[in-house]
Design a protein around this nucleic acid. Sequence first.
DNA 1: ACAAAGCACGAAATCGGTTTCGTGTTAATA
DNA 2: TATTAACACGAAACCGATTTCGTGCTTTGT
Lengths: 340, 340
Amino acid sequence: MLKQKITLKHIAKELEVSISTVSKALKNSEEISRDTKEKIQAFAKLYNYKPNNIAISLKNKRTKNIGVVIPDIVHHFFTTVIRGIEKYANKMGYNVIVCLSDESFDKEVINMELLANGSIDGFIMSLSSGTQAKNDYNHLKEVTEQGIPLVLFDRITNEIDCDKVVIDDQYGAFLATKKLLAEGRKQIGLITTDDYLSVSKARTEGYRKAIAENGGLVNENHILKLSSMDVDEVAIKSFLDKTNLDAVLAVNEIFAICGMRVAKEKGLRIPNDISFIGFTDGLLSKYANPGLTSIAQHGEEMGEIAAQMLIEKVESENEHESYKTKILEPTLIERDSTLN
Amino acid sequence: MLKQKITLKHIAKELEVSISTVSKALKNSEEISRDTKEKIQAFAKLYNYKPNNIAISLKNKRTKNIGVVIPDIVHHFFTTVIRGIEKYANKMGYNVIVCLSDESFDKEVINMELLANGSIDGFIMSLSSGTQAKNDYNHLKEVTEQGIPLVLFDRITNEIDCDKVVIDDQYGAFLATKKLLAEGRKQIGLITTDDYLSVSKARTEGYRKAIAENGGLVNENHILKLSSMDVDEVAIKSFLDKTNLDAVLAVNEIFAICGMRVAKEKGLRIPNDISFIGFTDGLLSKYANPGLTSIAQHGEEMGEIAAQMLIEKVESENEHESYKTKILEPTLIERDSTLN
DNA sequence: ACAAAGCACGAAATCGGTTTCGTGTTAATA
DNA sequence: TATTAACACGAAACCGATTTCGTGCTTTGT
């Protein structure tokens, strides 16, 4: 019943040759005679021989697996990045092992240690908020010190020397704020998270910069810092109640959508009375009502680039430690939550 | 600079004992004297020795990896399933290798063949539409014949004997349709895909059953079958134009959201003039405007159960081939796209 | 004091491949 | 015909662990 996987040893015994001969014949080595090669190859094809990946990994010290560690998978942005990674990795014959840190420092460490013991050839990761809050990157240091290539994307740190891919978050927020200013908005609010998240910090800076460059002064009351990634609708409502905004920039699409909902409940018309711009440009932005103008982060492209950088490092023998940081340009996708 | 990974051999040489002694000492074998064990364990701790996963996998013929093959990762439902799988698998010390078939039969086959050669202990998968359309399951047969455990979820087939997890799609659609009928809706439309997708077929049946049970007759013009998973807004618009519906059931949330948008453009009030119910209950349903009433598919739970079933099979020695199909009950989540 | 038992450890096989090196046979060359 | 080169293949080491079996030494028993 059970069709046992066939190995070189089986073929060798059956054909009365040595294991080495079989191995060479299947690699079409010049060393083996035409006759023998044909016989062995035919037999292998017949019995659908496929070499055991694990054995090859052990010999080569290369697994053709890449480890991806991200905070959460139920986030459109991360999911598009994975798709990009998968796309490129697959093309190059690599598999993708996905681990979720669940925004927790401990889980991130455990996952990485597990994978680092031979299961993968390199890491692609985005830091958990727990790690960024703790500001402890020893697990990353250990990995790089062992010579395991690492590529950070989106949520990165300067503490570690490695390849990185990010979008220019500051510029993205700058772009969005400029757009709102160009519409003639005067009271522009920002809904963000605590500063320990590198991206939120950068976006806040972009927002400040745009306003300053426009000769305005940032009203600190116009900035709402939510302490968690979960939407706090109550906080958003009281924020909109207390202020008198005519535009809102949010660091992700959920905050923006939630803001729009609250605004509509307050009887405000979007975009006539108040404009909204979000980050991420995922499904929510596209299918929201009205469609949410947003800053596209080009996740899929980011994933492809990260995979490319990683595989290049994995496959390059030389250890000349030169690390690149690729900065992608964000794009403003205009929809109906802003004036055309 | 490069901190080389330490192996049993290194420890053995350094401490002038044999490799076997080191191995046994680290497993706290009774065979080894207290002194020697303490010496070896201390040394291993000091140099942070961790056994090589690949070597262990080769020896044990167990990788502690499970392969997940899904059509697409940029779908809320699938990501929740992955999260459920990850959750359980991680707890049991397993890693998850994710492969995307991209709805293509060929990619599905290639990915599975790659992983089946020793990289994983078992598969969890949901069929690509390409595979369901082609109705060819030989790649699954081969895998099961090799004794590799397989669990199918959501998009399954009866052609293969293996464990399965699904929600009762027919009942879900039945439930939704009943709800619409209870609201007093008379002209209930259905937006679905071609029948080759097992879930669409089941949902269509549930819809028919509910109407029939209510003494109604299904108007075939009230059923729109889209040929692809991509939203065809034009088709939906002409569908709503041609019919005169007062309620719509859609087999996924995107179709439903798109339907709501078209309806609003036509000047219809939701839910006063027309109700909408979708499937999936993802972010879109939650943050749509109005919030979309929908049938929750309990993806995370499905993932956990699938992982549990798989790991149980993986870890059970005996080959008594008994396969279960677990059917989860869908739940109706009421929001503002239907009358309360 | 001598045989039996027990202790602590090492040699070697194994998992399934790859690869280096050595060797017997045949063919080419002097 | 003797020598050498080319050819075709096998033995064995290796990757990094686990595990069985064997063995030298000490200890116990009589």
